[in-house]
Each structure stands twice: as C-alpha cells, then as structure tokens.
C-alpha cells in the first residue's frame, strides 16, 4: 500500500482513466447489487437480529426488551446444552479426521488402477447421494439390537455377540459418527482422487528411480501436493458438522435420553417446539461465535496476511 506510484503531471489523464474505469465497472456493480443486498439484509441482517433477540426474554413471538446475559447463563447451566457441545466436539473431530483418513485410503486404493474402478468409485460415492434422513433411518435399523446387526450375528450362531451402541448412552454418539463417516468418506475420496490424478507422472518415475517406497511417496510427496484438496474437503466436512441435525433426528432423536443431542437440534427445539426464541437464539449466537473463532485464523492466514506481505 505504501508504494503507490503518484504521477503528478498527468493528473487529468489519470482522472479520466479512473472515471472510465468506474464506468466500465458500473454494469458489474449493478449486476451484483441484488446479491449484495440479499447478503446484507438476509444474512447479516438476520444474524444481527438473532444476536439481538438472544438478549431478550422472547418466548413465542419476538419481544424487544433487554435482559442482558440472562439467557446465556441459563444456557450454560443447561445439561442438555453442555452435552450437545460435547457431542458436537466428539463428532467434529472424529468425523473430519475419519473422513479424511478413510477418504484418502479409498482414493489411494482406487488410484492403484484396480480393475472395475468405475464400479468401486460409484459404490464409495453412492452414500453421499443419500440424504442424511435416509442414512439415519437405515443405520437406525441396521444398528437396532432387536432387528439389525446384533440379531443377525446372534442368529448365525453367536448368541453372546453384543453390539448395542445405539441404545447405550455412552456409545450412541459414536454410532452417529459411523453413519456420518459412511456418508461423507466417499465425497472426500472423490475430491482427493481428483487431486491424485493431477500428480505429475514424472514425480512417480523419479521416486521409482530413487528407490523410494510407495507409501513414502504418498505421505511425503503426494500428500503435501494435495493440500488444496484436503482444505476443500475439510471445509465441506466442517459445514456438515456445524449443521448436523437431520442425521441425529432421523437416527436417535437425540436419545437415548439426551446422549446424542447436538446444538442445532437444541436451537430448533427451542425455537419451534418450546416457544423459547430467546434461548434458541442465544444458542445460535454461541454457534456463530464458535464458527467465527474457528474460521477467523484461517481467513486471516489465507487472505489478510499474504496481502500485507506482497503489497
């Protein structure tokens, strides 16, 4: 920014170029105006409105009084909210890392030029084509101890086999992770596979000449090259974590007890079922703060810092 060249003598000329530049940009600005308005009014506006409501005592209808942080202190004394936060953390870490690892392994597997690659690719990607609701219901049946996997294995002659995670309070959240992995790993695979296909053949040849084992090439050479794909996949998976709602509703309805409650469900229940707009919006605000505080360092590293350096 400090090194903008200033040409004093040619002021008039630069003004005309600036004017023509504006004129050139005018149609573009016009075209973007509706979108900008939508972003401003709908996204930013609703966000501010939500934050404002979280400081009120609104119940069924919005009310514009001021109760300070009362809703927040209520929120942090609420068992169910605390369980939700814990659950989303468990789910987030396991789901994102699990999808990346599994997706990468699947991509590497397919990248070995296996026969029937198309079939495998479709099979692995197929779960992603299902909605979370379908996924949830299917896994609910599959994991139900009375009619799913446990019963099947017992009927096959192992009467002591137990797999009752979905009805077990301590383990139920992991069944949500399993279903999520099944759903999301395929997409990660597709993204990483596209990256793998873009790796230069010569790199492989060079590595072969040097006698580097294949796994080492993947870990030390290919994986760093895939960085943009890994970031893309992570961003996509993260949005999936934040909005996790339908999978839980379809699969466990937050149960057994409150063992699989998640923040988004807490918001929905309080906004629409329990006529408690204030508490719902307070939760939504906390979610917003969490997302922003996760995103901020990334945005800073990606957009702000490089600009400062290059200028």
């Amino acid at each position: 920014m400090a090194t903008i060249p200033i040409r004093v003598p040619n002021l008039a000329a630069s003004r005309t170029t600036a004017r023509s530049r504006i004129r050139k940009r005018l149609p573009a600005a016009f075209a973007l105006l509706p979108t900008a308005l939508v972003v401003l009014v709908v996204y930013i506006g609703c966000m501010l409105w939500t934050v404002r409501l979280s400081f009120t005592s609104s119940t069924l209808l919005p009310k514009l009084d001021w109760v300070g942080l009362a809703q927040y202190s209520r929120l942090f004394a609420n068992d169910r909210f605390l369980t939700s936060v814990e659950n989303i953390a468990i789910f987030g870490v396991l789901f994102i890392s699990g999808c990346l690892i599994l997706g990468f392994l699947l991509a590497v597997f397919i990248d070995q030029n296996v026969r029937g690659e198309g079939v495998f690719r479709t099979v692995f990607l197929y779960p992603y084509a299902m909605s979370f609701v379908v996924t949830g219901v299917a896994w609910q049946w599959f994991l139900n101890p009375g009619l799913g996997l446990q019963k099947l294995v017992r009927d096959l002659g192992f009467p002591n086999f137990t797999f009752d995670w979905i009805v077990n309070q301590d383990m139920a959240i992991y069944t949500i992770v399993i279903a999520g992995l099944w759903h999301g790993a395929g997409l990660t695979m597709a993204i990483l596979l596209a990256g793998l296909r873009g790796v230069d053949e010569d790199l492989w040849k060079a590595a072969k000449v040097d006698g580097i084992p294949t796994w080492r090439v993947y870990v030390s050479i290919v994986l760093p090259l895939l960085r943009p794909m890994v970031i893309t996949a992570t961003v996509l998976l993260t949005t999936g974590v934040v909005k996790l709602y339908d999978l839980v509703v379809a699969m466990t309805l937050g149960g057994p007890g409150i063992a699989t409650e998640v923040p988004a469900k807490f918001v929905m229940d309080h906004l629409f079922e329990r006529n408690n707009i204030a508490l719902g919006t307070a939760t939504a605000t906390i979610m917003l703060i969490a997302v922003v505080s996760v995103l901020a360092p990334w945005v800073y590293a990606r957009y702000v810092r490089p600009q400062g350096r290059h200028a």
């Binding site: 119940t59 068992d79 169910r80 057994p256 409150i258 229940d269 309080h270 329990r274 408690n276 508490l279």
Partner: peptide, 12 residues
C-alpha cells in the same frame, strides 16, 4: 411449552 420441554429433558 418451555417447562414441558424442560421436564421432558429431565424425564428422558
């Protein structure tokens, strides 16, 4: 509805 919901959370 709010108290009903809170009771429900406790009961479940």
């Amino acid at each position: 509805p709010n108290f009903t919901g809170a009771m429900q959370d406790a009961i479940t």
